[in-house]
Every structure is written in structure tokens, then in C-alpha cells.
Design a protein around this nucleic acid. Structure first.
Lengths: 194, 194
DNA sequence: AATGATTGTTAATCTAGTTTAACATCATTT
DNA sequence: AAATGATGTTAAACTAGATTAACAATCATT
């Protein structure tokens, strides 16, 4: 079963009994999306937090000028959703779209609330997930401020080598906050130096 | 007692009995810092998460070139610390320094762990605090990407009018990710338009 | 009241990154 | 094999914001 990926992940943080595992999986939905499908759409209220079993997604924001800004990529063993929309049940600021065929495990607000009551340990687990997300998010803020585009690209490649391979270059430019043309220039400069 | 501020804040999210409130306050420390004192220092391991009862702090990062980058300001009713350092107990990336005399309530890792056992409801509370922090952090990432410095400044003023008043202008420039000279230029342009 | 420290302004020059636009490469479909 | 669409490259002209440097204004402190 594909539930194993999620269990392995959870068991890094807390220990569930076999019964608790059964309760957990009775309350989640296993779902497949195709490449290019949207998991969350800007403006809709986000109904799920999603754990990725396989595949790859981009979370992006479309500004008033129609420009796409990629906030994060997510792959196997990561979470994806518009957390802001999900927790406050207000319209989403972000889109989440599949870059590959993607298998998810979905938690609704209701199923999570029910799970928190039946398995209080899960509060701890999701607190830890949230804490880790804050740390990652704050690291990004620092980097965007104090580093040049070249430095940010080099760090990106080191930190997420898999993603650098799997995702088209113009999306990486968007993630880095620069144009695709400038990323292209950076890359050719980096090659010439070596 | 000054504990009231924290209780009011907690009671927005969960309900504590009088006994639980007593347990909570038996495990925290109430502490005063003077203007300019450091609550957290880059390189040290961060020992506390701090709830601010009164005063104002800046959280900043000092880069290799010796430049200061302000990640956030915090005032009454907000939390401050280097969460990344605190939760992983590794050296802090950030400094937290008081911009005014500041009164805090401090939670250590040990007191929090003990509290989570004695009052499991607090897991939920701190999960919610963490979730809100993620949302705020992600909003900042979007803004830095898709908006010009002028737009970011206008949003800052609207979102945190109190802070705009209480904090020197060059620090606001640092928070916005621009130089103090450029912020000065922006402000005079905005005044001329009206 | 005077001195120096801290904060803020203005203007000239400079640069990292954008825009535009034309072209090249690669994949997918017919 | 040709055609279409998606992705990537290069180069010239442009702009938001940085840097430098000189000067005001505001403030504590003696």
C-alpha cells in the first residue's frame, strides 16, 4: 500500500499504534492527479492539506499583471496546499498545480478535527510540521534579501538538486524571483567560469 | 498581574481551567529587558519562545558583509524568538533585540514539553500559533516578489501603522529590503503626489 | 548653549536585473 | 517529414534601486 510513505514520515515524529494507524487511514482520501491538473485554485477555499506520495507540484501566485510567481515546489514526502486558506477557510491566494502525475493523501478540515480528538498525539505531529514550514519560509526570506540572484540560484541547486532536474528552467527563474532570460545569462556565466 | 495579556490571547484559541492557568504560570518566567538589550543572539542556541506583554523588538540577520536585514518587528501580543534555533536547538540565524523596554513571558523547551504533557490542549494552541506564523511568512514572500518597493512600503504602513510610528525609518527600509536613501526618496515622491 | 551622536534628505553616478525582440532547440502531433 | 508549441538563448536598450558623499535636522548629554 502507498500509505507506507505517510506512516514512515509520521513515525519520525510520533509513534502510532496499529489501531491509530487504522483510524488515520479511515479518515483520509488517497487521490491521483494528472500532470497540469490543479489541486488548489486561487480564489477557491482550499479544502485539503495534501501529503505527496509521488509526483511534483508548484505553488504559485498570479499577480494583477498576470505574472506567475512560484512560491514553492513540492515533491514526495512534502506537504502542499494553501495553508492560509485552509486554516482560515477563506479564498486561496495561491494555485497548486501538478508538474507531473501526482499521488496525494488528502486531509480535510473536518477529518483533521476528528483526528485531533481521536488521536490527540496528532496535534503534536502537525505542530511540528507547521514549525518546520516556518523555518523553511523564514530561510527563504533571508536569502531573498541578502543574496544576489547568482547566489540564490547556487543555493537552490545545492538544496534541491532533484527539483533543479525535474522542473523547466523558466519555473526555477520564477521561484528565484528573476526572469528566465536573466537565469539563462547567470547559467552561461557560471559555465564559463569553470 | 501582567499574565492577563497572555491569558486573553490563549483564550481566543482554547479554553483553560483555572487550575490549568495556574500550571501554565508555574512553568513560565516573566522577564524585563531594557532598550537595546538582546533577547537572542545569532550563533547562540535560542533558549526561549517569548510572548511580548509590552514593548517592541526587531528580529534581524547580519550577513557576511556586516549588513543588517530585519526579518520582522514584534510588539505587544506577538511572539518573538528564533523559532528555527529554538525547535531544533541549533545556533540561531537571527538576533532579537529590544527597540524599547520590553516585558516578556518566556517558555523554555523543557517547560513547553512539560506543559504539553500536563495540558495537552496546549499542543493545539501552539499548532495554531505556528500556522499563523507560516501564513504571515508566506504573505511576505509573495509581497517581496511581486511588488515594487513603493507598493511594499504602502502595504507595510497600512498593515502595521503602529510600527511605522514607533520605529526609526532606516529600520523600516531594512525590513522592506531597500536602502534608507531609497525609502527617503519614496516617501518624498508619495508626499508630492498628494 | 554647545557638542556630538543618531537619524533623515538630496543628488549624481552606477549596476543588477528587466524588457523586448529575434532566433534556436527540442518534443509532440499530424 | 513538416508543423506546431513549448522551452531556452543572446544581445541591446532601459529602469528600479544601490552606492557614495555631502549636508540637515533632531536628539541627548554635559
Amino acid at each position: 500500500m502507498n500509505h507506507k510513505t505517510l506512516l514512515d514520515y509520521i513515525n519520525k515524529h510520533i509513534n502510532l499504534t496499529v489501531e491509530e494507524e487504522a483510524i488515520l487511514f479511515s479518515k483520509v482520501v488517497h487521490r491521483n492527479y494528472l500532470k497540469d491538473q490543479y489541486i488548489v485554485q486561487q480564489g477557491d477555499t482550499c479544502k485539503h492539506t495534501n501529503f505527496i506520495i509521488s509526483g511534483c507540484t508548484k505553488t504559485f501566485y498570479m499577480d494583477e499583471k498576470g505574472q506567475e510567481h512560484i512560491v514553492m515546489f513540492s515533491i514526495e514526502d512534502w506537504w502542499t496546499s494553501d495553508l492560509g486558506s485552509f486554516i482560515t477557510q477563506t479564498p486561496a491566494d495561491f494555485n497548486v498545480q501538478c508538474l507531473e502525475n501526482t499521488q496525494l493523501i488528502q486531509f480535510t478540515t473536518e477529518s483533521l478535527e476528528a483526528l485531533y480528538i481521536e488521536i490527540p498525539k496528532l496535534e503534536r505531529f502537525f505542530r511540528k510540521v507547521a514549525e518546520r514550514a516556518i523555518v523553511a519560509s523564514q530561510k527563504r526570506i533571508i536569502q531573498n534579501f541578502s543574496l544576489s540572484a547568482i547566489e540564490r540560484y547556487q543555493i537552490f541547486k545545492k538544496t534541491y538538486p532533484e527539483i533543479d532536474q525535474r522542473v523547466p528552467q523558466y519555473m526555477i527563474a520564477s521561484y528565484l524571483g528573476i526572469t528566465k532570460e536573466f537565469l539563462s545569462k547567470i547559467k552561461s556565466e557560471l559555465i564559463q567560469k569553470q
